Simulated assay, not measured.
Amino acid sequence: MRSIRGLAQRRVVRDTALAVAVGLAAAAGLRQTSSWQAAPARSADAVGYLLIALGAAALALRRGRPQLVLACTTAATAVTLLLHYPYGPSFLAAGLAMYFVAAALPWPRSVALCVAACGVLTGAVVVAAWDSRLAMSQVMVGGAVGWMALPCLLGVVLRVRREDLAQSRAEAVKREAYAERLRIARAVHETAGQGLAAINIQSAAALRLAEGNPRGALDILRTINTTSKVALQELRATLGTLEKGDRAVPRAPLPGLSSLPSLISAMSSSGLYVRVLESGCRGELSVAVDLAAFRIVQHSLANVLRHASGTVATVEVEYGDDQLLLQITDNRDPEAQVRSSEQDSTGILEQAAAVGGKVDLGPAADGPGFRVCAKLPRR
């Protein structure tokens, strides 16, 4: 509240200072021009200075009532011209008022008001110059119109530009909000979606074994219980990160390549046999790369369960000096991947791109099956 009040006070001070400065400049101009403009120009006197002061004082209201400011300055300037005071200084306040109107109001309305004000001032110039300065009236009218049109045009241009910038910022905010919603939806899908897919497959197997092999169905139910706990822990960790941004400390550690054994165990209980081959020195991996590598393996194995008829998959992890190489192959028909939805591959591609990596998807080179090859930087 204090900051808003202080801002309003500073604006009042600035507007008052502007009005005083314009009044002093116009009064000095009136005194100077009255010494060299030919008769019947009136010399500067109290009435002339009063009209100058009235026109300049109106500028102090420019923020709240720009139309009233334009009306007051136009009237003061017109009276100054009709009383044959020197031509020129009184236009200063009127020109600024036209700029403020054009900058504050929509351009069709501001242009109409400025044209009306120009018409009034042009008429005053013509009437004032009709008797003795008819030969110079065209020059005076042209100068008056030019002096009034320039501030109006400048104000319109600046207002249109300001509106364009505001619209661009609003659209940027909408795009960022949409991207944030997609990021949250993707993060939730990566955590809860994969776990629910495994639970769905495991529960279907338990239903098939319920009548003929109750003990086997009970083992699968225990696996479902474990899988659901892991999925809930990952979901809580993800939501804890999203609550305060990516720099927030999650409520639970985010999964990485060290979590592969639990992932493989869940996949094996769902009917998918997975072999894991590791080579090289693991060393230290950044949190982002470690999480992206885990998600790529998780996505790939979940795709095998969801769309393929194969039951064997191999996960190869090679720790290089500068990069991490992941290769997930299975014995399914490569056409099964083509028939699957694009979202299955999109998640893998986005995870790699988020850390500056690349992914190659396609049929396995050394036999039947499908291959996912991801190259990620170590940091």
Rank of each mutant, 00 (worst) to 15 (best):
A78P: 00
T80S: 15
L81H: 03
L82D: 02
L83S: 04
L83A: 08
Y85E: 06
P86E: 15
Y87K: 08
S90L: 09
F91T: 05
G95V: 02
M98N: 06
M98I: 04
F100S: 02
P108N: 04
P108V: 03
R109P: 00
S110V: 12
V111L: 10
C114W: 01
V115D: 00
C118H: 02
C118P: 00
V120R: 04
T122F: 00
T122N: 01
G123R: 10
V125F: 05
V125R: 06
V126L: 09
V127D: 02
A128K: 06
D131N: 14
S132W: 10
A135V: 10
A135I: 08
M136F: 14
M136P: 02
M136E: 14
M136I: 13
Q138D: 07
M140R: 13
V141I: 09
G146N: 10
M148H: 01
A149L: 11
P151E: 07
L153G: 10
V157R: 11
V157P: 01
L158H: 10
R159D: 05
R162F: 10
Q167Y: 06
S168E: 15
A172M: 12
K174R: 15
E176Q: 14
E180H: 07
A185M: 12
T191P: 03
G195I: 07
G195V: 07
I199T: 11
I199Q: 08
I201T: 12
A205P: 01
R208P: 00
A210P: 03
R215P: 01
G216A: 13
A217G: 05
A217P: 02
L218H: 15
D219I: 10
